[in-house]
Amino acid sequence: MKPGSPFGTDVRRGALDGVSIALGYLPVALAYGLLAKGVGLSLWATMGMSMAVYAGASQFLALTLLGEGAGTGSIVLLTLLLNARMTLMSAAIARRFSDRRGPMRALAAFGVTDETFAVLTLKQAALTPAYLLPLEFVPYAAWVGGSAAGYVVGDGLPASLKAGMGVALYALFIGLVVPAVRASRTASIATGLSMMLSALISRGIGKGSAIVLTALLVAGGMAAFGPQDDRAELTTSEEEAS
């Protein structure tokens, strides 16, 4: 553990950053629970899917396809395609996760999502279990709890609040990217290129593939052809206010 970040501080920061993500998950989880009930899943299956799969987009996809009478094999195959981007994100987290113990790595891998990836790779340079695990499992609790709540009590939020919470995840991404973009020209170029490319690519192909393709083209292209001397400006500063 590095000096200046004792165990308790890391846990507190991780939990707090986790709350920012959890807030964004709640309305999505409520909608998922409600839809699952509509498609005819049991409460057990609704929660079981959230607990075991823990990947929002593919869970919605599964509900939609079940509603259309699709088979298990095709849903699992589409889940593989939609979630292939997780491997890229896990690779980025794994190389910075300091703990070598097997069970710790197995747990850390389970909580990788678009959102935990974004926070983990941009907020803190050294990833200790004390920071990473609360950050990953506070949102997990919100996802599972929200799924059950959506199923049981429905989605009782007023429309305007729901709209507001629907933007929470985008606000999270923007909140992570803006400080880096402000500090680094390379980060601005990468983000800008990715936005433009994604806008073009996502017209043609599905969400998961569009993200993978955009990320590989932008990060791969800039790593291969960009200048090699500005690494220092990209590394994250050790924690602003939190």
């Binding site: 981007r85 678009d114 790779t121 991404f173 990217v177 990468a190 993200i211």
Partner: peptide, 11 residues
């Protein structure tokens, strides 16, 4: 670079 390349596409 990966976080920026992914986040642009997520936003």
């Amino acid at each position: 670079l990966l976080p920026f390349a992914v986040l642009g596409a997520l936003i």
